[in-house]
Design a protein around this nucleic acid. Sequence first.
RNA 1: GGUCCCAUCGUCUAGUGGUUUAGGACAUCACUCUUUCAAGGUGAAGACACGGGUUCGACUCCCGUUGGGACCGCCA
Length: 470
Amino acid sequence: MANQEIRVRIAPSPTGAVHVGLVRSALYNWLFARHHNGKFILRIEDTDVTRSTQESVQAIIEGFKWVGLDWDEGPYFQSQRLDIYRKYAQSLLTEGKAYYCYCNPEELEAERQKAWQRKIAWKYDRRCYNLDAETKAKYEKENRPKAIRFLVPSKPVIFQDLIHGAIKKEPQDIEDFIIMRADNTPTYNFAVVIDDAEMKISHIIRAVEHIANTPKQILLYEAFGFPIPNFAHLPLILGTDKKKLSKRHGALSLWEYKKAGYLPDALINFLALLGWSPGGDLEIMTREQMIKLFSLERVNKANAIFDIKKLEWMNSVYIKNMKNEDLYHALLPYLEEINIHPTDKKQFYRILDITKVRVRTLIELRDMISAFYTKDVRYDMSAVEKYITSKTKDYLKELCLRFEKLEEFTAANLENELRKLAEELGLKAADLVHPCRVALTGKSVGPPLFETIELLGKNTVIERLNNIIQ
RNA sequence: GGUCCCAUCGUCUAGUGGUUUAGGACAUCACUCUUUCAAGGUGAAGACACGGGUUCGACUCCCGUUGGGACCGCCA
């Protein structure tokens, strides 16, 4: 394997939404490829015709594009390579390394269930391998459906996992698994091996749930005389219940994170750290840094729990650190959803300056920004009840008058004016600030008031103030 | 039931036999700043699952126990 080109792949099955576990696996493969100047290949494992969908293929392609994981080859589709698998399966058959199995899947399943209930280990007993010529001929004559099983050699399989070290499996613990279904399509364990070998994959980096499949696959490599690639099995991402992250855990499709206003860079940074660390205290990293620092040796063995709180925090950091122009572009689609089209960019950037520091997601940011653009303010009733009283209405009336007279409608002047009035009335500035904020934005919390007033503009301010007074 | 994997604060992790009174981040709490909410600053609380070895010395190496997880399909 020395001096061989580094080639890795991500091989998702298009059977549902893209979820973060897939993205994390893809990311590690991508990081590994980029670090070593190798190739990152996308292969769609769609041999299960009944469950694969075109929409899911699209979701994978668009999802990877969204998070910026670009691939160098593919997408390849297993469904377009069926002849190849059939050819290889035939060669195994003729070499006596595989055999036809005429068993009824339902019957086998029933046996398995029964054994399970009795708490006995169950393994396919090779009955079709031992079939006498007569019954075999009979089955053939009956045109019985037949699958192809691999004849597992009786020697232990040992391999060096790049993350877990040596792993050994005894032959009695591996059953003669099916490589071709009765419908003449390959099973996963067979197709991956053929593809990984043909595509000259040097490192198979995938989730640890596949670790039990690896010995079977190695046996296949050996049966064909293919060079055996390196294996690295990644820890799982778990939900808060410590179970493998799945649909039960709520929002987990990539698309849902996008919808909720997460930045791809933040998500990637977060995912990179779920199972890997560059060492030391570095956490917020650019992709270049990640690529430079990434190594499989530093990947953890233990599963990691997905902590949305930390993602939220990281997302907020990315939002804060983003240049206004970039943030503007990231935010645009979300603004369009609620029909906000900022025309004055300079003004918009100033709004960003005072809002971006207090949100965690683009949705939160957009909602905070919407107060500056919406025509009808949505009042938070509890805030109104608390701050808008007959007394404060009088204050606001007076404040409105003074604001109206202001020639330069700037934050500094506005503050000056408000403080002056507060003093005259024998009040604290806060006694005017809070009602004023509620009157103008409908909420008791938000960006600093005076900047808000200035950015809202005189007309809007007077209008909203008058509105509330009446 | 079988096979395999794993084990440092609640969570993500640093730590590769002595540099450690185990470091950082998120979350939590307090204080600070302050017109609110955030952000920022300062600080607090919080972990090596347990038991045996090995060693002059173990979070670090070995074994066991316990606990957790994954897989056991003509799904991938």
